[in-house]
Design a binder for these strands. Structure first.
Length: 1029
RNA sequence: GGGCGGUUAGCUCAGUUGGUUAGAGCGCCACGUUGACAUCGUGGAGGUCGGAGAUUCGAAUUCUCUACCGCCCACCA
C-alpha cells in the first residue's frame, strides 16, 4: 500500500499529462475515422473558425460541446468523424491584414497590388491557422486532422466553382443593380451585418428647388430637407404624396387608436401629435394639395447647381406629416429612394467614385470628397438664396464594422443568387423535420428569414476569396451577343465540358467556366472577354462545407458514407447566414439535407452581460484558462454552464502575476495598460500595454474564477481514484452475486445505473449542463462522500475486502467512462493507471480489450441494479447520519470523541437501518446502542433530533451544553407550531379536502401527524432539559 | 416598430407533468489537517421566486397585463 500512495501524486499534473496523452492518442490514430461498413457513421463538421485571429472562449464552448458528442458516439461504437478546418472569412481577414499593412508600412492594398496582398493574407492565414489548430489540440479536440480543410483550398475551390456554374446554368445566378453599403476606405461593399450604427452630431438642411414655369396659383419653389445635402447632385425627382389629406387622416386614425391603448402617462404626448396634425392641415395642406396636382400634370423642377430638369412626382413615400411634406429622391444613394426610383421609373445617377470622391455626374464638384462637397454645396445653395434653414440634429449614421468609416449607400452592379426556390426547399426541410433545430424556438428565426426569399448578393469587391468564374464581354448589338452566347453554350456538352453563357440585356455576354485553369479561359480572354474581379461572399464557400470537405463534387466513398452529417453545433448568430445556406446548398448539390440535427448553444457574456471581445478587453483566452486550471477544467466548466435557455454570464478577473490575486474586471479598469494589484501593490500589464514602460511589467492574464468548480472537481476525482488504487493492491477480479451484496454496494450500483441512464439521455438531447451536474453529483456526493467513506472500514476487514475492491474498481471504471467525453485527459490518465490492476475490472467479469479509454465502450445502464427500495433505505441512513453530525457540531463535540446514540423508530425502519449500524461509527463517530429502543432514563438528558419519523437520541453525558439544546428546541418548537397551524388550516378548508386528490390530502394528514409527533417530542425534550438544570 | 429570451440566496445559475419546509456551486460564519483529497471535511446563516391581476383547494411553475435587462430583425428624408 505504501508504494502506490508514494507513486501517485495527490495532484494531477495536467500540463504535462495532457500534452503527452494527446500526442499518444494522435500517434495511435485514435482520432481517425474511416469508411467502415460495419459501423454506423456519426459526423460533425466543425464550424470553421475564421483565420482572422485566435480562438476565444466562445469557440472553446462550441468545440467542447462538439467533442463531447464525437467522443460519446465514438465510445458508443459509431465511426465518429469530426471534420476540422478553418474559414478564409473574406472581408474580415482582408481588413485585418490591410489594417496591419497601413499601421506597419503605411501602405494601402493598391500600393501592393492584388497578387502581393493575397500573398500576405495567405501568410497571415498560415500563422493563425496553426495557432487555431493548436488551440483545438490543447483543448483535447478529437478531430480527424488528416482531413483538415480550408474554405479557400483546392478541394473547396472546386466545389465552389462547380456549384456556381450549376446555379448559373440553372439561371439562378443573375446580375442586378443594387444599393450596397459602400466602405470608401476598403473600397468594397459590406453586408448589412457588417454595419454598425452610431449617433453623431449633424445638421438637417432645408433648401428649395425652383419650379420650372409655375402656373398661376402654383408655388415658385419646393422645399425639401436632408442630412446629406451633397446627395442632391444625384437627385432625379422630388416626391409629394398623391393624396395628402387622406394620408393625414390615416395618420390621425392610427394615432387615435394608439391613444385608446397607450398608458395614461403617454397619452399627453400622443394627443400633442394629434393636435400637431390639425396645425399641419392649416399650414401645409393647401400647398401639398397644389403640389400633388402639379405632380399629376407633370410639373418639372430645376435642380440647382447642376441645372438638371427633374420631375415632381406623386408617391406615397412622401409623408405629408413630416418636414415640408416633400422629399428629394436620390435613387442611387438611398435605399428608400431606390425603391421609389424603381416604382416611378426614375433615372438613377451615381455620383460617387469607389474611393468616396465625387465623379463626373457631379459636375463642378467632381473630385471632391464627400465632406468637401457637402460644405461647398451648402455654401453654393446659400449663395443662390435657396437655403431655407439649418437645424442641428443627431444623426444615426451607418459605419463599416471593418474600417470604422461611414458607409455610403451606393448603387452598384452585383451578382445575385435567386432565392425563391432554394429558400423554399430549405424551409421545407425544417418544417418537415428532416432538419431538427434545438432548442426548437430557433426554428422560427430560420423560417422567417428564409421566408423573405430575398435574393442573395454574392459578390464582394475584395481580393481575398473565390474569384467569380465569369468572363464578360459587351458586344455592339444584341444580335452579336446572342450569337456569342449561343456559340459558347454549344460548348457545354462538348469536350470543354463545363461552360454556360447568358446574355445580359442589351448586349453583354457572361460566360461561366466550371473548370479552373481550363483552356476555355484562355480562349475567352483572347476573344476579349474579361474576368469578373469580384470574389464570392465568404458564406458561399461555407455553405458547401458539409459536402465540400468530404470531397464533393467527386463521388468519394467518404461522401457516400459520412454524408449527410449527423449534427451541427453552433451559435445562434449564424443560423441564417450559415445554417440556412448550408441546408439550401446541400439540397441543391446533393438533394439531401446536410445534417439532421442542429444544436444552438448559449453565448458567453462577461459579468456585465456584454459579449466578450478583444476590443473591449473583457475576452478570456482559453489558453490562459487552460494554463491556470487545465484543459479538463475549461471543458467541464463550460459544459456545466451550458444550460438550455440562458447565455453564460461569466464575471471576469485579472490575475496578478505576482501574487495570483484575482482582481474583478470593471468597465473602468478593463482597458488600462497597467494595473496595480491591490493586494501586493505591484503593477502588471494588460493587452493594452503599448509603451515600453508598460510592457516591462509582467502580463496579468484575464481569467474567470468560474472555472474553480471544475478544477476542484478534477482534483476530487483524481484523489478518489488515488484512494481506490492505493487500496486495490492484491485485487483479484471475481464474479459477485449481486443479490448477495451488502446494502451499500447495491446502493452505489443502483445509483451508478440511474446516473448512467440519465447522463446518456442528457447528452443525447444536448442537455450538457444536466449531464455535467448529474455525473458531478454522483462522483462527489455519492461515490466519494458515502461509498468511499464506507469502503474504508470494509477494506480493513479481510472477509469483506475483496468484494469492496471489486465494486470500487467497477464503479471507478464506469465513472471514468461517463466523464470521459467532458474531461478526456484526467480520465484517460487515471484509466491508464487503473489498467495495471488487470484488464478485468467490471462486475460482469468482461475483460477490457481497448488500450485507450477514449476508444473503450460507453457504459450500459444495468437496469436490474436500479432498486428504489435500497435507495429509500439508504436515505434513512443518511438522515440519521445527518442528525448525528448536526448534534455533534451543535454541541461542539471533538472529532476524536465518540458518542452513543439510539434511534427510536418503527420496526420496519429498524430493519432498514440494521445493516448500516457499523457505518455510524466511521462516518459520524457515533456508536449505536439500540435501534427501535431508547436509552431508558438517563441522569443527564440527551440531545435529540427528530427526522423522517425517527428520533435520534444522543447521550452526551457530561459534555452536553444544556442551554444550547434548549435554545435549539425552542426554535424548533416555534417552527413546528407554525407549520402545524398551516397544515391544520389547509385541512380544515372544505374546498381542499373535497377537491384535492385523495392521495394529496392523505399525505397532508400524514404530514400533520408527523409534525405533531415531532412537536410532542421536542416539548418532552425541552421539559427534561429544563428539569435537569 | 416586430420577434425571442431572461428576472429565484450577496454572486452565477438549477427547479421535470402545479402538491410537504424552493435547491446547487462560489462567497459568508463556526469547527476540523485520524493516511484519497484544505483544490478537503462537518455543521450553520441567508430567498414573501421583478411587480400587479387571473385561473385553481393549491402557483416559482399556467394565463393576462406591466417594469427592467439582453439579443435578433425591420426602420430612421
Amino acid at each position: 500500500m505504501g508504494n502506490l500512495s508514494d507513486s501517485i501524486p495527490n495532484r494531477f499534473d495536467y500540463k504535462q499529462a495532457s500534452a503527452e496523452i494527446y500526442a499518444a492518442w494522435e500517434a495511435d490514430g485514435c482520432f481517425q475515422a474511416r469508411v467502415n461498413p460495419d459501423r454506423k457513421p456519426y459526423t460533425i463538421v466543425i464550424p470553421p473558425p475564421n483565420v482572422t485571429g485566435a480562438l476565444h472562449l466562445g469557440h472553446a464552448l462550441n468545440n467542447t460541446l462538439q467533442d463531447i458528442q464525437i467522443r460519446w458516439h465514438r465510445m458508443r461504437g459509431f465511426e465518429a468523424l469530426w471534420m476540422p478546418g478553418t474559414d478564409h472569412a473574406g472581408i474580415a481577414t482582408q481588413a485585418v491584414v490591410e489594417k496591419r499593412l497601413k499601421e506597419d508600412e503605411n501602405k494601402t492594398r493598391h500600393d501592393l497590388g492584388r497578387e502581393k496582398l493575397v500573398e500576405r493574407i495567405w501568410k497571415w492565414k498560415d500563422e493563425y491557422e496553426t495557432r487555431i489548430l493548436n488551440q483545438l489540440r490543447s483543448m483535447g479536440c478529437s478531430c480527424d486532422w488528416d482531413r483538415t480543410r480550408f474554405t479557400l483550398d483546392e478541394t473547396c475551390a472546386k466545389a465552389v466553382r462547380t456549384t456556381f456554374a450549376d446555379l448559373f446554368g440553372k439561371g439562378l445566378i443573375f446580375r442586378g443593380k443594387r444599393l450596397v453599403n459602400w466602405d470608401t476606405f476598403l473600397q468594397t461593399a459590406v453586408s448589412d451585418d457588417e454595419v454598425f450604427h452610431a449617433v453623431t452630431k449633424g445638421h438637417f438642411w432645408h433648401f428649395k428647388y425652383p419650379v420650372i414655369n409655375p402656373q398661376a396659383g402654383e408655388p415658385t419653389h419646393v422645399t425639401i430637407a436632408t442630412t446629406r445635402p451633397e446627395t442632391m447632385l444625384g437627385d432625379t425627382a422630388v416626391a409629394v404624396h398623391p393624396d395628402p389629406e387622406k394620408a393625414l387622416n390615416t395618420v390621425e386614425e392610427l394615432l387615435r387608436e394608439k391613444l385608446a391603448h397607450v398608458p395614461e402617462k403617454e397619452k399627453e404626448a400622443v394627443q400633442q401629435q394629434i393636435d400637431a396634425l390639425d396645425e399641419r392641415r392649416r399650414s401645409h395642406l393647401p400647398l401639398l394639395e397644389t403640389l400633388a396636382d402639379m405632380a399629376k400634370r407633370g410639373a418639372k423642377l430645376m435642380l440647382p447647381l447642376v441645372d438638371r430638369e427633374i420631375d415632381l412626382i406623386a408617391d406615397e413615400w412622401a409623408k405629408p406629416e413630416l418636414g415640408s411634406g416633400c422629399v428629394k429622391i436620390t435613387p442611387a444613394h438611398d435605399p428608400n429612394d431606390y425603391e421609389v426610383g424603381l416604382r416611378c421609373d426614375l433615372r438613377m445617377i451615381n455620383i460617387l467614385n469607389p474611393d468616396g470622391t465625387l465623379n463626373d455626374h457631379a459636375g463642378s464638384y467632381e473630385g471632391l470628397t464627400i465632406k468637401k462637397a457637402r460644405a461647398k454645396v451648402v455654401e453654393d445653395l446659400e449663395e443662390l438664396g435657396l437655403m431655407v434653414e439649418i437645424e442641428d440634429r443627431e444623426i444615426d449614421l451607418a459605419h463599416s464594422d471593418r474600417s470604422k468609416t461611414p458607409i455610403e449607400p451606393y448603387l452598384a452592379d452585383q451578382w445575385f443568387v435567386k432565392m425563391e426556390q432554394l429558400a423554399q426547399n430549405a424551409m421545407d426541410a425544417v418544417t418537415d423535420s428532416r432538419v431538427k433545430i434545438f432548442p426548437e424556438r430557433y426554428a422560427k428565426g430560420y423560417l422567417d428569414w428564409l421566408g423573405e426569399k430575398r435574393d442573395w448578393p454574392v459578390g464582394r469587391q475584395l481580393w481575398w476569396g473565390h474569384q467569380i468564374p465569369i468572363w464578360t464581354k459587351t458586344f455592339d448589338s444584341a444580335e452579336e451577343a446572342g450569337n456569342a452566347a449561343a456559340t459558347w453554350n454549344a460548348h457545354t456538352d462538348a469536350a470543354s465540358g463545363a461552360i454556360s453563357a447568358a446574355v445580359e440585356s442589351p448586349a453583354t455576354v457572361h460566360v461561366c467556366v466550371r473548370e479552373e485553369g481550363h483552356a476555355t479561359e484562355a480562349e475567352l480572354e483572347m476573344q476579349g472577354f474579361v474576368r469578373q474581379e469580384d470574389v464570392l461572399d465568404t458564406w458561399f464557400s461555407s455553405a458547401l462545407w458539409p459536402h465540400s470537405t468530404l470531397g464533393w463534387p467527386e463521388k468519394t466513398e467518404e461522401l457516400d458514407y459520412f454524408y449527410p452529417t449527423s449534427a451541427l453545433i453552433t451559435s445562434r448568430d449564424i443560423i441564417t447566414l450559415w445554417v440556412a445556406r448550408m441546408v439550401l446548398m446541400g439540397l441543391n448539390n446533393l438533394g439531401e439535407v446536410p445534417f439532421s440535427e442542429v444544436y444552438i448553444h448559449p453565448k458567453i457574456l462577461d459579468g456585465a452581460g456584454e459579449t466578450m471581445s478583444k476590443s473591449k478587453g473583457n475576452g478570456v483566452d482559453p489558453i490562459d484558462v487552460m494554463d491556470k486550471f487545465g484543459a479538463d477544467a475549461l471543458r467541464f466548466g463550460l459544459t456545466w454552464l451550458a444550460a438550455e435557455t440562458q447565455d453564460v454570464r461569466m464575471p471576469v478577473q485579472f490575475e496578478c502575476p505576482h501574487c495570483e490575486e484575482a482582481i474583478n474586471q470593471t468597465k473602468k479598469n478593463r482597458q488600462l495598460p497597467t494595473i496595480e494589484c491591490p493586494k501586493c501593490n505591484k503593477p502588471f500589464s494588460t493587452q493594452w500595454a503599448k509603451t515600453d514602460e508598460d510592457k516591462a511589467h509582467p502580463r496579468g492574464a484575464v481569467i474567470s474564477e468560474r472555472f474553480e468548480l471544475a478544477r476542484n472537481f478534477g482534483n476530487k476525482l483524481w484523489n478518489a481514484a488515488r484512494f481506490v488504487m492505493i487500496n486495490l493492491e492484491g485485487f483479484a477480479p471475481q464474479r459477485l452475486d449481486y443479490t448477495a451484496l451488502p446494502l451499500e454496494d447495491r446502493w452505489i450500483l443502483s445509483r451508478l445505473s440511474t446516473t448512467t441512464q440519465k447522463v446518456t439521455d442528457a447528452i443525447a438531447t444536448y442537455h450538457y449542463s444536466d449531464a455535467a451536474r448529474l455525473v458531478y453529483d454522483f462522483a462527489w456526493d455519492e461515490f466519494c462522500s458515502y461509498y468511499v467513506e464506507m469502503a474504508k472500514p470494509r477494506l480493513q476487514d479481510p472477509e469483506k475486502k475483496a468484494a469492496t475492491q471489486q465494486v470500487l474498481a467497477h464503479t471507478l471504471d464506469q465513472l471514468l467512462r461517463l466523464l470521459h467525453p467532458m474531461v478526456p485527459f484526467i480520465t484517460e490518465a487515471i484509466w491508464q493507471q487503473l489498467a495495471q490492476f488487470g484488464d478485468v475490472r467490471s462486475l460482469s467479469g468482461k475483460a477490457e480489450d481497448q488500450k485507450w479509454l477514449m476508444r473503450s465502450d460507453w457504459p450500459e445502464a444495468e437496469l436490474e441494479h436500479q432498486d428504489a427500495q435500497i435507495e429509500t433505505q439508504f436515505a434513512s441512513f443518511v438522515s440519521v447520519l445527518g442528525a448525528l453530525r448536526e448534534i455533534r457540531s451543535r454541541q461542539g463535540i471533538k472529532p476524536k470523541e465518540t458518542v452513543r446514540f439510539t434511534v427510536q423508530c418503527a420496526p420496519e425502519i429498524v430493519a432498514l437501518l440494521e445493516p448500516m449500524q457499523t457505518y455510524f461509527e466511521a462516518l459520524a463517530g457515533a456508536t449505536c446502542e439500540g435501534l427501535g429502543t431508547s436509552f431508558g432514563d438517563l441522569q443527564i438528558p440527551p440531545a435529540q433530533v427528530s427526522v423522517d419519523g425517527m428520533e435520534v437520541v444522543v447521550d452526551l453525558g457530561d459534555f452536553i451544553d444544556v442551554d444550547a439544546e434548549i435554545a435549539r428546541n425552542e426554535k424548533l418548537d416555534a417552527n413546528l407550531v407554525k407549520q402545524i397551524a398551516g397544515k391544520e388550516g389547509k385541512l380544515s378548508n372544505e374546498n381542499f379536502v373535497s377537491r384535492a386528490p385523495e392521495e394529496v390530502v392523505a399525505k397532508e394528514r400524514e404530514a400533520l401527524e408527523e409534525l405533531k409527533k415531532q412537536l410532542a417530542s421536542v416539548r418532552e425534550s425541552l421539559k427534561r432539559l429544563r428539569d435537569s438544570k
